[in-house]
Structures are given as C-alpha cells and as structure tokens.
Nucleic acid binder design. Structure first.
Length: 467
RNA sequence: GGCCCGUUCGUCUAUCGGUUAGGACACCUGGUUUUCAACCAGGUAAGAGGGGUUCGACUCCCCUACGGGCUGCCA
C-alpha cells in the first residue's frame, strides 16, 4: 500500500438497522475511496456491550450490501481490539500524556450536580491530574488524557473549514475506564490509525469530538487524518430525522421498492453537488465525487425527487439486472416470488414497462398483464370499459386476429380499422382492450401487451371478456 | 448556560466580489397522446433580519433570530 493511497472507513454502532443518514455517510466514504483507487473499510463500533447486538451488525451489513457498497478486507470489530486500545492507553500513561484518575463516577456526578445547582457549567477537572503517585490509593482508576488546558485546537476540516475550539472547554476525557475497557474517543483514534485511515468522513455530530481525538493523535505522535464532517439528513419538515417521519432505515427503502442505483444517485446528490449534474451512473459518481462539493447545511429528504431519480434509473437499467433486483425486492418485501412462467413473460415485457415505473411495486403493477393469468379479473376502473357495446366489438375483433400476422404494424392496421368501422377513435377502443388483456386501465401500449403475451393468449383473453 | 456548526426558489442545489441569481424535483399553463409514465414549450418561485467593509456584496466581517450538534467511565 502506497503512502498516498486513500483509505476511508464507515464505522457504525450496531444498535439498530442502518440509518439512512449512515447509509449516505457510508456512500460518501465509498465513493471517495473507490473513485481514487483507495480502500473502503468497515468497522463495527461495538464497545458498548449493553446496546450492541449481532442482529444489528447483520442488518447493517445487509443494508450496505443492498446499497451496493462493498468493503475491503474483513469487518473489524472494535470490541475485539480492546487489548490494543488498553495498550495505547498505557503508552500514553508512560509518555505522560495521560494520568491515573481515582475519582469515582459518584464523585464526578456529585460535582456536576453541584455545579448545575450553582448555575455554572464548569468542566470536570480531576484532582489527580498532577497528583503525587505516592498518594495513589489502592483502588480502581480510570486513565484520563492530559489535555492542554490553555490555547486552542484547530480542526482543518474539508467541509467545515478551519474550526477553532478552545482547549479550556474540553475536559480530560477518559480513555480507559476503571474496568479496563476503552472509551470510544480512544478506540476510534487507535483503530483509525492502525487501519491506516487517511480520510475520516462522518456526521458533523462528531465535529467537536474531532478536537479531542486530534489530541490523542498528537499525544501518540500519529499523523492526523483529513477530516470531513458532513451535515446530518433531516426530515421533510427540517427537523432531525426520526421515526415519525416514516422510513429511517435503508432496509425500509428497499422494501418500498426503490432501485439501489436510484437510491445511490439520490443520496449522492443529497448534500453534495457537482455543477448541474443530477442523473448519473455510479461509475460517473465515483469519478465526480469530491469533498469540495459537500454542502455545509443539513439536507431534507424529498421523496418526490427520490422517486423521480429512481424512475430514471429504472429505465436505464439493463433488463437482466432489473429482473434480478426485482426478485430480490420481492423477497425483501415478503411478496410471493415469481414462477418460471412469470419470469419468462416478465423479462419479455420489461422493455415496455420499465420506462413507466419509478419503483418496483409500480413496475409490477404496470406489468400485471404479463404476471397474471386467465381468467383476467378486471379491477373496478377498467371494468367500466367493458360494457355491452365494447364486448360486442371485442367479439367481432377476434376472428380478424386469428388470421393476423403477429407484428405491431399488422395489429395496428387491424385495430385502427376496427375502430374506424365503429366510428370511434382508437383511444375509445383501447380501454376495453386494456380491461380484457390486463384487467387494468393503466397499462403499456395495447400492441406491446399483445406482442408480449402472444396471439393465442390474446385471443383467449378477448373471448373471455366478450363472453 | 457554555462552546461549535449552519441559513439561496416549497425541496435538493449552482454561484467561490460585478450574473436578467442558473439547473433539477415539485407545482401551474399549453402541446403531443392509446390509459399510465414519459416527452416538448412556457410559467410561478430564493439570497432569514440588521449593521458594517468595498466603487460594487448571496459571496468578506459583526450582531440578532431560527435550526442543529457537543457539553458521559455512550458511540
């Protein structure tokens, strides 16, 4: 690995499904690395044993996989590295950049309660910071970082610019708990360093943390990575995205039937721009994506635009890939899978339905004529078109179809002819045909439907409807 | 409370001191049409408020308002 190689990572906590915001963070990291021949690593921050679950880890991996974000190497478990974290904490102790703190959680809580009662909000300053080791009690201790108390720490952030934080506002954070386990602030730095992470792209809720983490890098003499703190995603009302906004997990978007490519495109454009580029492939996104294009303000989720973007990708997708993803959608959504016959017919029908759909449920609805089988049950809207007059016309149509050559031109000639004979426009004839062939009022072109299902099936369906 | 970040059409955004402030989604009007989707033409719509700096500010600085984040022996 060359020193110049870009290494990014996504480091979620396994406490639930993959949040849509986390999905976008992962996407940004992935695009940045993949567009530069770099590596994209995955680390599960499972040091909080109370809240971490294997199910959540599995859900996150599943969400990333659906989004098409592949990672390099093995997934790193932060918890598995706890010995290494403790080792670094003790190195800091040896270097004098950290110290043993014997203050108990109760004492600290009391200090905070008292400060709050006074209306002040001073940070906790451990009395053990400069204590004489001879006075150390025989008791459990936490290891605290000896953070500078004066001056300021500068974060050079690719998105936020230069952020200055006064050191006096930061306390001596604990790096190793009194039970010997590492805290997040220590673990994240040690892991990022050991994994060779060069660019930390994450939510801006970590912006303040970056200052404290940078102190750890400095304390260990390690190179500080490039920081890029991106704004969070908000709900349509501008408030922090929460359950009451509806879908917050990427798995929910899969179940709603959005194609992953469209999801990637939409998420890439959410909070990032490159001139007027709107619709682009993932390969194009990899080439274009950069840190300069990331906005500083939180972006709101807009389902209308998501759908529009997905519609473009739906029609751009090759049939084979579309069919494959459709089947995965059916499984994810808990819908019945396709029979062999349905799959054959659907793959023949895709060319005339994929331009008309934005999501998989829409695609399925538009392709209903190919997925259903006789007898065709007309829904309420289309049934209205099957009145006595229409049925008579359909009846008179079938003999002429018996002898037709089954091409679009020939069918068009016959149908326009029949419409003319009855003194009606073709549109008037198309509605009962839709009802007979698909049982729906919104369908692909009647010619396309006839070509897809074939001559025998077409005639059979018309005879059923005319009966 | 303190500290940090943010604020351009309804939404996503372009603009990196000089533009009739551009594009996309959505919406409205007209056209096309075989329903839906799409497509074509056009339209409505924005620099939070107030001070500066400057010949000139959306752009730089300050204040206010609003939104968000951090302020844990959570991550």
């Amino acid at each position: 690995m060359s020193a110049a190689q870009v290494v990014t990572r996504f480091a979620p906590s396994p406490t639930g499904y993959l949040h849509i915001g986390g999905g976008r963070t992962a996407l940004f990291n992935w695009l940045y690395a993949r567009g530069r021949g770099g590596k994209f690593l995955l680390r599960i921050e499972d040091t909080d044993r109370e809240r971490s679950t294997p199910e959540a880890t599995a859900a996150i991996l599943k969400g990333l996989t659906w989004l098409g974000l592949d990672w390099d190497g093995e997934v790193v478990s932060q918890f598995d590295r706890k010995d290494r974290h403790a080792e670094v904490a003790h190195q800091m102790l040896a270097r004098g950049t950290a110290y043993k703190c014997f203050s108990t959680p109760e004492e600290i809580a009391a200090f905070r309660a008292e400060a709050e009662a006074r209306g002040s909000y001073a940070v906790f300053q451990s009395p053990w910071r400069d204590a004489d080791p001879a006075t150390f009690p025989d008791a459990p201790f936490a290891i605290r970082m000896k953070a500078p108390r004066e001056g300021e720490t500068l974060i050079r952030d690719e998105v936020q610019g230069i952020v200055t934080i006064k050191n006096e506002t930061l306390d001596d954070m604990i790096v190793l708990r009194s039970d010997g386990t590492p805290t997040y602030m220590l673990a994240v730095v040690v892991d990022d360093h050991d994994m060779g992470v060069t660019h930390v792209i994450r939510g801006d809720d970590h912006l303040n943390n970056a200052a404290r983490q940078q102190m750890v890098y400095d304390a260990m003499g390690w190179a500080v990575p490039v920081w890029a703190h991106i704004p969070l995603i908000h709900g349509p009302d501008g408030k922090k995205l929460s359950k009451r906004h509806g879908a917050t997990g990427v798995e929910e978007y899969q179940a709603m039937g959005y194609p992953a490519a469209g999801m990637r495109n939409y998420l890439t454009r959410l909070g990032w721009a490159h001139g007027d580029a709107e619709i682009f492939s993932t390969d194009e996104a990899k080439k274009m994506f950069n840190l300069e294009g990331i906005g500083r303000a939180p972006a709101r989720l807009d389902f209308k635009k998501l759908e529009n973007t997905c519609g473009h990708h739906m029609s751009m997708m090759p049939d084979a890939a579309l069919l494959h993803e459709l089947e995965r959608f059916l499984t994810a959504a808990g819908r019945p899978t396709l029979t062999g016959a349905q799959r054959d017919l659907l793959s023949r029908a895709l060319y005339c339905v994929k331009d008309r759909a934005k999501t998989f449920p829409e695609l399925i609805e538009k392709a209903h004529f190919a997925l259903t089988s006789r007898p065709i049950v007309a829904d309420d809207a289309s049934a209205k078109a099957l009145d006595a007059v229409s049925r008579g016309i359909l009846k008179s149509l079938t003999p002429r179809l018996q002898n037709a050559s089954w091409t679009k031109d020939a069918l068009e000639a016959i149908l326009t002819d029949v419409a003319a004979e009855h003194g009606m426009g073709f549109g008037k004839l198309a509605q009962p045909l839709r009802a007979a062939l698909a049982g729906r009022s919104a369908t692909p072109s009647v010619y396309d439907m006839m070509l897809v299902i074939g001559q025998d099936e077409t005639i059979a369906r018309l005879e059923d409807a005319a009966a």
